[in-house]
């Protein structure tokens, strides 16, 4: 009955076109309704850990800055600010090769990039039960307060020098990966961050 009008593509495909328009409208509505919330979730993922990494930092006062590393690549970093808007430190999102797949890390440093305030692991696929303890508070706290002047070194016993990090038992490679990621990011970004123009706006007025 319907197949007799050969070559008449419009009558053949009107349902497809109608559905495409209908679904397109539906998707546009979903996009308009939810895109703001999704973007906020994505931002929050980084922002919500900032107060736990840098004492006194206020999530809402965070400022995003683009900085060019020594390797010539642009990286978006976050400036952690306190209640008065004063600069308290920097959050550097970075990542690198772990034992299995990439590890994504947030590194918090103080305002003059002299010490590490803390680290936070956003994403990793290390071995469950061994390497994945890099996400734990216990391991992450081993980085807090370390100076950025010297390269961090992973040791298997209790640290004796201030640039030594104790490895996780049975996960030396994962531990070395994290400290390597931290070393690389600081080597790449310490100078560029210090060379950033002095903060305008909030801190100038405070």
């Amino acid at each position: 009955m319907s197949g007799t009008s050969k070559g008449n593509y419009i009558t053949q495909a009107w349902l497809v076109i109608f559905l495409a328009v209908l679904y397109g409208g539906g998707l546009a509505a979903v996009q308009i309704a939810l895109s703001g919330k999704i973007a906020e979730n994505k931002r929050n993922e980084t922002y919500s850990v900032i107060p736990s990494l840098i004492d006194g930092a206020i999530k809402e006062n965070t400022v995003e800055t683009l900085v060019t590393g020594l390797n010539g690549k642009d990286i978006r970093i976050y400036e952690a600010c306190g209640g008065s808007g004063a600069r308290l430190g920097w959050i550097i999102p970075t990542g690198g090769q772990g034992f299995a797949d990439r590890i994504e890390v947030l590194i918090a440093v103080n305002a003059d990039v002299s010490t590490i305030a803390g680290i936070y692991v956003l994403d990793q696929k290390e071995t469950p039960g061994l390497g994945d303890y890099i996400t734990g508070q216990d391991f992450r706290s081993r980085f807090a307060g370390k100076p950025t002047g010297k390269k961090l070194v992973v040791v298997k016993s209790d640290p004796t020098a201030d640039n030594e990090i104790r490895a996780l038992t049975g996960a030396t490679i994962s531990s070395e990966s994290v400290s390597g990621i931290v070393n690389d990011a600081i080597a790449n970004l310490k100078e560029p961050i210090l060379n950033l123009p002095a903060k305008s706006g909030a801190s100038a007025s405070s």
Binding site: Q97, G98, F99, A100, D101, T127, I173, S177
Partner: peptide, 9 residues
């Protein structure tokens, strides 16, 4: 094979 990529790097 896990860790081969790290060693190779």
């Amino acid at each position: 094979f896990a860790g081969v990529d790290k060693g190779l790097a």
